[in-house]
């Protein structure tokens, strides 16, 4: 079992470049400098930057967290960072802000915590934001090598569900799967297929102004920023994909869209939050459990010993039993 951290320093974009180009332009120069200094001392790559009012900057390396600089973050500085991340145009990120996050160029997600403003029973916005977490999206070429044989079987793409807890590399592996399926590999006799990506949070393709910034392959069509279910239906109707890919299934309408795709003869690959099969089943009602019956393969990932470790693979027959 291979973990994708092993490919650090290989063909992939180095951390420095990602931080310098995508993250530091939004942070005060001083903060960029202390993060740069800390990062230079580390072997591992930063996976998360946490900014909290009254606290120092905290960086996450894998599962470990370190505080850098003695300076405390002020509310004004945080407000300025948020404004920069929104390109000083909050109206353009209205729907994302309501959900408590924004995605910036490169597919990096910035989560926020603060006080919710409620209008007519719905969250209108967050005010007095006191905490930000910048999750750094990484393109790890080859991270899906170990699970590709389960996904591409008998000359076609299997309906695949990737289940993993947070920080396990679900999205990174899914992105690499998309790339490999889209580009194909003639040496293995695997031809490239049209892949449709329903990228609600711009995390898979890292699209900026509609154009994917991360390598998702030559035959990949991305619908960016639309709700998963709507995007999947748009892809089915308009783009004739052989595979539809989406991240983090959860709502009832997502499951309906997956059913539609499967019934239309399109393979589906998706991810789901969860530790193991029991954990996932415990959260689902009977109808939602039928979702499992749609998949031919469920892959469980873990972040131990490293992010992206394949822990277990369940095939079609076992899945049917689970669904019942």
């Amino acid at each position: 079992m291979r973990a994708y951290n092993e490919v650090k320093g290989g063909m992939n974009m180095k951390t420095d470049t990602i931080l310098e180009e995508d993250i530091f332009p939004f942070l005060p120069e001083k903060w960029g400098q202390v993060i740069r200094e800390e990062d230079a001392l580390r072997e591992e790559r930063i996976s998360e930057i946490r900014l909290r009012v009254g606290e120092p900057i905290r960086l996450r390396y894998g599962v470990a967290e370190v505080a850098v600089s003695h300076e405390r973050i002020t509310a004004q500085c945080l407000e300025r960072v948020i404004s920069s991340c929104c390109h000083h145009s909050r109206y353009a990120m209205e729907s994302e802000l309501k959900n408590g996050y924004i995605t910036i160029r490169g597919g990096h997600r910035i989560g926020m915590a603060g006080q919710a403003v409620i209008t007519r029973g719905e969250i209108k916005m967050l005010k007095h934001i006191h905490s930000l977490v910048i999750r750094i999206a990484r393109e790890v070429i080859g991270s899906a090598d170990s699970i590709l044989p389960y996904v591409w079987k008998d000359g076609r793409v299997q309906n695949t569900l990737i289940v993993a807890p947070p920080y396990s590399g679900k999205t990174t592996i899914l992105r690499d799967l998309v790339r490999q399926l889209s580009d194909g590999d003639e040496s293995c006799g695997r031809c490239g297929v049209v892949v449709g990506v329903a990228d609600e949070r711009s995390e898979i393709a890292g699209a900026y102004q509609g154009i994917p910034r991360l390598n998702v392959g030559a035959r990949t069509e991305v619908i960016d920023g639309a709700p998963k279910a709507s995007a999947m239906m748009m892809l089915i109707r308009a783009m004739s994909p052989a595979v539809i890919v989406t991240d983090e299934l959860g709502r009832r309408e997502d499951i309906t869209a997956v059913e539609e795709a499967v019934h239309a003869g399109i393979a589906v690959m998706a991810t789901l939050h969860g530790r193991d099969i029991e954990d996932v089943l415990a959260r689902m009602n009977k109808t939602e459990r039928e979702l499992f019956a749609l998949f031919s393969c469920i892959i469980f990932l873990d972040n131990k010993p490293r992010m992206g470790t394949v822990r277990k693979v369940i095939s079609r027959d076992d899945i049917r039993e689970c669904a019942i």
Binding site: S83, C86, H87, H88, S89, R90, Y91, E94, K124, M125
Partner: peptide
């Protein structure tokens, strides 16, 4: 004021 609020306010 610009860019600090939602579409309606803008």
């Amino acid at each position: 004021q610009l860019g600090r609020t939602d579409c309606n306010e803008t």
